[in-house]
C-alpha cells in the first residue's frame, strides 16, 4: 500500500514510517504540518493517509481540517486520524459525508503494531473504524433518536462494535455468538434504521453515523 503520514513529533513520525516499512508498505510522503499535508494528499492520492489531528502551524485541528478539505476534493480518500484524545464531535464531522474509508483512533493504539495495521487496512478498504473510547462515551447517553430507540440492547451492542470497525466475524467473536446470528442482528439494525440494500453501498457507515448522531 502507498501510505502518507502526517505527524509533527519526529520520534512518532519516524516510528510510524519504520513500522509501515517493516510490514512492506510504501511511505510516499511524511510531512509535519497541515498545508503540506493537503498538498501531498491531492498530489500523491495515497491508498491511505495516517494523520495527526493536531499539527503546526496553529496546533489546533489542522490535520482534521486538511483531511476534510482533501476528501471534499477527492471523495472517499481513505484517512485514518490519530489523536491524543478522541472527540465525538470530530468523529461526526469525519463521517458526515457518508463516504466511509475513515478511522479515528487514539495514538496509544499505535503501540499494538499488528492491531494498528489491521485498522489501517480496514480504512484503506473503505471501512469505518472508531476508537472504543468514542463508542463507550456515546454508549453512556440516553437515546434520543427514535429509530435508535427501537433497537434492542443486543442490537445496540452490535452497532457499537460495528462502529469500532469490526467485521461480522469480529463482532461474533466479541459477543461469543455465531456469525449467522450477527448477520441477522445487522439485518435487523439496517431495517430499523431504514437503510435498504441498493440505496448505498455504505450501509455500515450510515448506521454508524446514525449511531453517532444519536
Amino acid at each position: 500500500m502507498r501510505v502518507a503520514v502526517a505527524e509533527d513529533h519526529f520520534l512518532l513520525r519516524d516510528g510510524l514510517v519504520r513500522l509501515l516499512g517493516a510490514f512492506g508498505h510504501e511511505v510516499v510522503a511524511a510531512v509535519d504540518n497541515g498545508p503540506e499535508l493537503h498538498k501531498v494528499l491531492l498530489a500523491e492520492r495515497p491508498d491511505v493517509a495516517i494523520v495527526d489531528v493536531r499539527l503546526p502551524p496553529d496546533f489546533s485541528d489542522e490535520g482534521l481540517r486538511a483531511a476534510l478539505a482533501a476528501r471534499a476534493q477527492v471523495p472517499g480518500l481513505p484517512v485514518l486520524l490519530l489523536s491524543q484524545y478522541v472527540e465525538p464531535l470530530y468523529a461526526r464531522e469525519l463521517l458526515a459525508d457518508g463516504a466511509g474509508a475513515v478511522g479515528y483512533v487514539l495514538k496509544d493504539r499505535v503501540t499494538n503494531g499488528a492491531e494498528f495495521l489491521r485498522t489501517i487496512q480496514q480504512v484503506a478498504g473503505g471501512g469505518t473504524v472508531m476508537d472504543p473510547e468514542v463508542v463507550s462515551k456515546l454508549l453512556a447517553r440516553k437515546v434520543r433518536d427514535q429509530r435508535l430507540g427501537s433497537l434492542t440492547g443486543r442490537e445496540r451492542e452490535v452497532l457499537g462494535l460495528l462502529a469500532q470497525g469490526r467485521s461480522n466475524a469480529g463482532v461474533a467473536e466479541a459477543l461469543v455468538v455465531s456469525e449467522k446470528a450477527v448477520a441477522k442482528h445487522i439485518g435487523n439494525i439496517f431495517t430499523k434504521l431504514g437503510l435498504y440494500p441498493g440505496e448505498s453501498d455504505n450501509r455500515r457507515v450510515l448506521a454508524v453515523l446514525a449511531y453517532l448522531e444519536g
Binding site: 491524543q84 472527540e87 465525538p88 447517553r141 444519536g214
Partner: peptide, 20 residues
C-alpha cells in the same frame, strides 16, 4: 482539547453531544 482547538461554540456542542 476541543475548547483549545475550536473554541467555546464547538466545545459546548461537544458537551451537548455527550450529555445524557
Amino acid at each position: 482539547p476541543v475548547l483549545a482547538d475550536r473554541g467555546l461554540a464547538d466545545a459546548v456542542r461537544s458537551l451537548a453531544l455527550l450529555s445524557p
